[in-house]
């Protein structure tokens, strides 16, 4: 993928389509949520789609990604099956994990989406270990770990950065900085700048400020992934982004008092998934049909049986 230069217009369309797919999928989730057919927490990425789309585009099929509970976008950007995703959200046997894992733990190892953890920062070292395996097995894979700004406050994050740098492992650390951890702003939580700190470990690091710009994110990631493939050493990418919904759940929560609506409006003014009305009009019908099919698949899929309770445990 990274060796051929695609037609720029096609590439733009392709990235846009994936981003729009994620947006429309999550909007469908918002529509469905009140009907109680999704009986588990959902952490939406509306506003943050471009990070997942931009980061995943330059990856090759056998590259791996470890994610978080805010994982719908990465699952879809890696090419995870939409039917199986909806069935998982509905808790049906046709779900990626038989309905037993739900939204917070989307995984599709077949397309390199290795898992999603709902315990903050806990998947970061998995990427480092997988990177060691890539080196030992000489697979030339790049291993990505995507996490939020809050995750950088955990000890395991620092320990993982250190080990990856110390042993020169092919990891791309991707920090989705939405400035929030639940309701707490960055300034209330951190005495450091994430980028400086990554550099302290000797990891080349950069920050992108236009978190809506999937083309810029894809270009930056492409360059970093090429560097990692060349020297096998870790890189760090921080992207400033915007979470438009409540931390968990389908609603907006600007009334809660911890942030201001004005941020949303600024974001929306630049968000291609709102501004690029031509592409939206052209691509929406086909994507909507795809989502309709996935929803129908989920509805038709059976519930897990009682015997399924004890499967896959040991």
């Amino acid at each position: 993928m990274t060796d051929v230069t695609p037609d720029p217009k096609d590439r733009h369309d392709r990235l846009f389509r994936t981003a729009l797919l994620i947006r429309l999928v999550e909007e469908r989730i918002i529509d469905l949520y009140p009907s109680d057919c999704i009986q588990s927490p959902v952490h939406l990425s509306i506003g943050q789609e471009a990070v997942a789309v931009g980061v995943c585009e330059p990856l090759q099929r056998n590259d791996l990604l470890f994610g978080t509970y805010r994982g719908h976008a990465y699952y879809l950007a890696r090419g995870g099956d939409l039917n199986a995703m909806f069935a998982e959200l509905f808790g049906k046997i046709g779900g990626v994990s038989k309905g037993k894992a739900g939204s917070m733990h989307l995984a599709a190892p077949a397309v390199g989406m290795m898992g999603s953890s709902a315990v903050v920062a806990s998947a970061i070292p998995h990427a480092v270990g997988a990177a060691l395996a890539a080196r030992v097995r000489n697979t030339n894979q790049v291993i990505v770990t995507a996490f939020g700004d809050g995750a950088t406050e955990e000890g395991v994050y620092h320990e993982s950065l250190n080990f990856a740098a110390l042993h020169g492992l092919p990891v791309l650390f991707v920090c989705e900085n939405n400035g929030l951890a639940v309701h707490a702003s960055l300034a209330e939580r951190q005495a450091y700048r994430m980028i400086d700190q990554a550099r302290l470990y000797g990891i080349p690091a950069e920050t992108l400020t236009d978190g809506w710009d999937f083309l810029a994110i894809a270009d930056a990631t492409d360059a970093l992934v090429r560097e990692i493939r060349r020297d096998g050493r870790p890189r760090y990418l921080e992207v400033a982004t915007y979470r438009s919904r409540e931390h968990v759940g389908p609603a907006e929560d600007f009334g809660a008092g911890y942030r201001r609506r004005i941020g949303l409006e600024d974001w929306q003014d630049r968000d291609p998934l709102i501004q690029d009305t031509d592409r939206i009009a052209r691509l929406t019908p086909e994507i909507t049909a795809e989502i309709d099919r996935a929803e129908a698949f989920a509805r038709a899929s059976p519930w897990p049986e009682h015997e399924d309770l004890l499967s896959d445990v040991v």
């Binding site: 037993k100 733990h105 897990p304």
Partner: peptide, 10 residues
């Protein structure tokens, strides 16, 4: 004796 399933049926 299993991790907790997400789906209510289980």
């Amino acid at each position: 004796h299993t991790p907790c399933p997400t789906v209510r049926a289980l």
